[in-house]
Write a protein that binds this DNA or RNA. Structure first.
Lengths: 364, 364
DNA sequence: GTTACGTACGTAAGCGCTTACGTCAGGAAT
DNA sequence: ATTCCTGACGTAAGCGCTTACGTACGTAAC
């Protein structure tokens, strides 16, 4: 149990060489006699020695660690807001890319007001940082960038000077709504939005408007209601809606609200999609399991994580390359709730480069 | 964009003090004049200087980073196995505990055979390691432990010499099955298991047997079928079962298989729970959304992560304390599929110390 | 006015690596 | 037999911090 790390010096003396040689052996340099290398490696093994990452980092100016900063709503007790599940996908993707690049991934959640402090403490430990939207304030990001390469996720404002990876939310919602209009011929749609001031929420609504405009339908200036991105909020909004009228389709800003809507409609004895169609957004796991199965849009969150880290790794190597920004495409998941009669869809052939996430792999 | 980190020397000379003073100021030591401290802090601020974690780590012999090692099945293309969702919860919990303790969390997934290498590379970067079951081989864990404090998760064999956090799977399954027997009076149960050689799977079955034995029911020596912990596997097993007979209850080793079972039963026009009851295990998000809602057991995965890291932090400070192991309790989630007529259950009062995870917060 | 401390800060020795140079065999070329 | 490489390794100077000591100054006690 007593943990006494051994050092390169012990390994050196035990194998009768200098520390330089030990170092070279550990890095698999060439220009060494195989015999010497084996002796060194054997000694290292016997002593259970692993080069100290801190010392190595100090000497090479490279920690071999990249960080990702996100905002953990759930833990801050900040709101009733659902902890965003997609975060996990992003993190997994980031981990994968980091490991593939030979680095390790440091994760840190800002909560409430403590973001600033956290960010700076983390910044001393990593070679670069992926910063998710809403985790750190713009000025703080700017300050961090004075010491570190930064890649942002989902910060698409034109003024964002950093490399960025985002998902084409607006285009995705537009595509989904066009499906409703073109394929199903719906003309009477209602949009239930998320928190009014959330940029993400606004994007979704903008895509909705895009589609209506394109097809010469009346374009509302604001969502019918703010369902707060929660199941309960969605239910509430639909309950209110039903006291007024019954539209052809209820387009929801996310899956949670759509699921809430389905619940209310069932209670009201309205058939989905027979009497009303419903769509969601995000493709959470439950979307496949509610009845009817929910038509929605899948966001490639794992790809977001992967690409963000890959971009960061790149930026670390080429600090002066010109800024890059990527807009990742989404995948519609057409199921039953929009009115499509989906036969048991065969597994998609795995030929595309976009990897399916577990949630989407099997269709209901 | 050009990133030139400044050093303590620049801060020192800019504020007209020695590096020692700068260091002291950054650590908020007392025994300093407020004036000097402010000068130093101001200089640090102007230079956007953050102490280099590597150098600091080298000097203090403490990186301020703990790591967690898990196995990412999904990425290895190793099997059809579902990527274990609970992992995300564990990671989030671990992150929370690490951040709370002032440390950062490094995450790394072993995939396929590369685990060994990864583990050692990570071990140089952290102060301690949480190792999840199945991510690293026992001998490798032993080797790692020669350099680092280790806490294992879900390695409950009596020979495990390390601190461990596990969930009382066996007791949980036993409790669930007793509910079926005692409350509902079922006597004719069937168990669909996971991969036969998985220790986790075996635990679940053991709990099932415990319950039967206690109530003097016939105790099978093996599960009725191996559903591989997947939805498809569960469906397959139930399809086979139905060609033979219809039991009172189908107890599934996890939720995925239970959901597969529900699908097959629906197709077969069998009412759940009217004709057959079904139970799952794990309480994945979908369990609340399938119809009927699924009776299952919730595992406190977030707590697992939190406690593991807390234990590790403790171990780092007290390397010679005696070994500790904790067995975390689970929470049954009694819903409809077992035959209980669940009225809208009120929110549980938040008086218990066990925190509810998002998935369980709202009942259907 | 000395002595004796306490306070506030400076000095410099590491922490455990990497790597630019330097050294030293031994073989090729002359 | 010299000279000149070249390959294989050793030397030692950092990398950017922390911290045990040391020093200088001011204050209190006498």
């Amino acid at each position: 149990m007593a943990t006494a790390r051994s050092t390169i010096y012990e390994v050196a003396s035990r194998s009768g060489v200098s520390t330089a040689t030990v170092s070279r052996a550990m890095q698999g340099e060439d220009g060494m006699s195989a015999k010497t290398r084996d002796r060194v490696l054997a000694a290292a093994n016997e002593l259970a020695w692993v080069p100290d990452g801190r010392a190595r980092g100090l000497a090479t100016r490279r920690a071999g660690i990249v960080g990702i900063l996100f905002h953990d709503l759930d833990a801050s007790g900040e709101a009733e807001e659902e902890s965003p599940l997609y975060l996990d996908e992003v993190i997994r993707g980031a981990e994968r890319a980091a490991t593939a690049g030979g680095d390790a991934l440091l994760i840190a959640a800002t909560r409430g007001r403590s973001g600033r402090e956290l960010a700076f403490s983390v910044s001393g430990k990593v070679d670069g940082l992926v910063v998710l939207a809403r985790s750190v304030s713009k000025p703080d990001i700017a300050a961090l960038s004075r010491t570190l390469p930064i890649v942002t996720v989902a910060i698409r404002s034109r003024s964002n000077p950093f490399d960025d990876i985002s998902v084409d939310i607006r285009g995705a919602m537009r595509g989904l709504v066009e499906h409703l209009i073109v394929v199903h011929g719906y003309r009477d749609l209602i949009f239930i939005g998320g928190p009014a001031r959330s940029p993400d929420s606004m994007e979704r609504f903008a895509g909705y408007r895009d589609a209506l405009r394109t097809h010469q339908l009346p374009v509302p200036s604001s969502p019918y209601a703010d369902g707060g991105f929660t199941e309960a909020g969605g239910a509430r909004a639909v309950r209110a809606l039903l006291t007024e009228r019954i539209p052809e389709v209820i387009v929801c800003g996310n899956d949670e609200m759509a699921i809430g809507a389905l619940g209310v409609l069932r209670t009201a004895k309205l058939a989905v999609p027979g009497d009303v169609a419903v769509t969601g957004f995000d493709d959470i796991a439950s979307a496949r399991h509610v009845r009817p199965t929910l038509t929605t849009v899948h966001q490639p969150m794992r790809d977001v994580g992967e690409q963000a880290v890959r971009m960061l790794l790149d930026r670390i190597v080429h600090p002066d390359a010109k800024r890059r920004a990527a807009l990742l495409p989404t995948e519609p998941r057409i199921r039953r709730s929009c009115g499509c009669a989906v036969r048991t869809t065969p597994h998609r052939s795995s030929s595309t480069s976009t990897r399916a996430t577990p949630a989407g792999r099997r269709l209901s």
